[in-house]
Design a protein around this nucleic acid. Structure first.
Lengths: 186, 186
DNA sequence: TCACTATTTGAGTACTCACTCTAATTTGAA
DNA sequence: TTCAAATTAGAGTGAGTACTCAAATAGTGA
């Protein structure tokens, strides 16, 4: 992918993948459908992506990065910012949030490659939440901040999963309750 | 299914489905694999089940019912009992917990039949949690108890999802923290 | 302009899947 | 013992899947 034609094809494929996920879910997002929707032949697809899975993961990752309140990881984000970004992703990109969860729980117990990546991503998020908590509550030890961040992030994931089931679920309300509970001294 | 032969075949099929889910995950749980493992031909399978999905859902539902602390719904269960049952299911039957989550987030936005069943199941659980909270904390209004139950159950789901990703995740620790937070007066 | 590589083509491969159907066999109540 | 219904066998169906590959074409730096 060194010529601009390749870049354009890549972006057409990612756009088609995004639309298909939103319209038809993961089952409708086949290579055939992606290629038809992008106006491209399978050979071109496989010239740019190793697999269908790779294209889907790329779409999800880009969407998550797009709502990052501190993409450079400068430590300028507050807990409220982070939670807000999380809520925005789950509410505004609920189709991709569903795919994210599906990827997380796909495969078998010992499907180490993909699961490892998801875990690292989760740990990165926990770490940023923990730092934000520590900045706002210096009285907490790092260990405590991390533990609370871990509970909070996992709980937010649960909120997001439920929002996938029930579009009327008030994500913001429950997220706020969780943050409040997390920051209440015990 | 009126003769005992049918009942035996049914139980062989469910047992095979359970093993396959644990060994190979949902992708390995094909009709072919189920039938081979159960020593049965596809025709027999479809004499007893309408679809592969039905057999899988049966397995998951039976496992959830097996850990119910109050199967008759008499209102004798405490919040601790309910949370404990939840933890036991996610820890002891983590393969089925994974399948449960996968079913919940499968399909498209508007896949009403299955999603509706999952939602009703969730609401039933929230209602039992809310009643237990109300029994233990009569000072809370029903509305508040329900809202806290809703946050708690969704959060527990998140803990369960994360446990699926990371078998070392301390479900009990985080569940306890959540319960404590939920019951702390605001 | 040329040479080299990126890109595209699209028919084709090799496979899996859930599920069906008819005929044979077994069951158990009357 | 009879016999209708339950159960089983198992080859077969048709539709789908992700992905490949050799050959044609287009883009770009020198």
């Amino acid at each position: 992918m060194r010529y601009k034609a390749g870049l354009e094809t890549r972006s057409k494929i990612l756009q088609a993948t995004r639309s298909l996920i939103a319209e038809l879910g993961l089952e409708g997002t086949t290579i055939k459908a992606i290629c038809e929707s992008a106006g491209v032949r399978p050979g071109s697809f496989y010239n740019l992506f190793d697999s269908k899975e790779q294209a889907i993961i790329t779409v999800v990752r880009e969407a998550i990065e797009a709502v990052d309140p501190d993409p450079q990881h400068l430590g300028t984000d507050t807990l409220a910012d982070l939670v807000d970004a999380y809520i925005r992703f789950t509410v505004e990109q609920s189709d991709l949030a569903r795919v994210y969860v599906r990827i997380a729980v796909s495969g078998t117990r010992d499907n180490s490659d993909l699961r490892g990546r998801m875990l690292r991503h989760h740990e990165g998020r926990v770490s940023r939440f923990a730092q934000a908590i520590a900045r706002e509550h210096p009285e907490l030890t790092d260990e405590h901040a991390t533990q609370r961040a871990e509970t909070l992030v996992s709980s937010l994931n649960g909120i997001a999963v439920h929002r996938v089931l029930d579009p009327d679920f008030d994500v913001a309300l429950h997220a706020r309750a969780l943050v409040h509970m997390t920051l209440t001294p015990i």
